[in-house]
Amino acid sequence: MPVYNEKVMEHFMSPRNVGEIENADGVGEVGNPVCGDMMTFYIKVNDNHISDVKYKTFGCGAAIAVSSMVSEMAMGKTLEEAKKITPALVAKELKGLPKNKYHCSNLGAQALNKAIDNYLKKQGKAAKSQKGGKK
C-alpha cells in the first residue's frame, strides 16, 4: 500500500521483539484505545544496558512499525543512549511516516522512555530501602 514506504511495511509485516517480559525491570504504557493507539514497552536492564526489550501494541500499521523500530533502536543501548531516542529519530529510521501518523512515533519513544523511568524509579526505591535496611 503506497500510504507507507517499504521500510515501514517491512516492520509492520514482520515486527521485531513482540511480546511481554515476565518480571520486567521497567514497564511503560502510553496511549489509550479511545485515541486509537496503545503501547506497552517492557525492558530488562543489565549493567546499565537494555539487555532485552519487548512490547505489545494496539494500533494501526504505523503504530506497529514504530514499536518494532523503537525496540530495535533500544536493544543493547545504555539507558542514557536509549533515552535519547526521539520521535523524530524513530521517524527518520523508518524513512518517513505519513504526516497524520507522526503521533505514532511520539507514542513509541514515549513508551520506551516511560519504561526506563519506571526502572530508574524502582532502582531509586531499592537503593533507598537498602539504605534504610543498613540503619
Binding site: 509485516m13 486509537g36 494496539f58 494500533g59 494501526c60 500499521g61 504505523a62
Partner: peptide
Amino acid sequence: FIEGEAMLMLLNSQGIAVSSGSACT
C-alpha cells in the same frame, strides 16, 4: 482488541480489499 487499519493492511497483503471505519483510516 485490535485495530481496523492493521487488519485492512494484512488482508490487503493476502489480496483482499476492504474498508475500515477505524480512527487510523
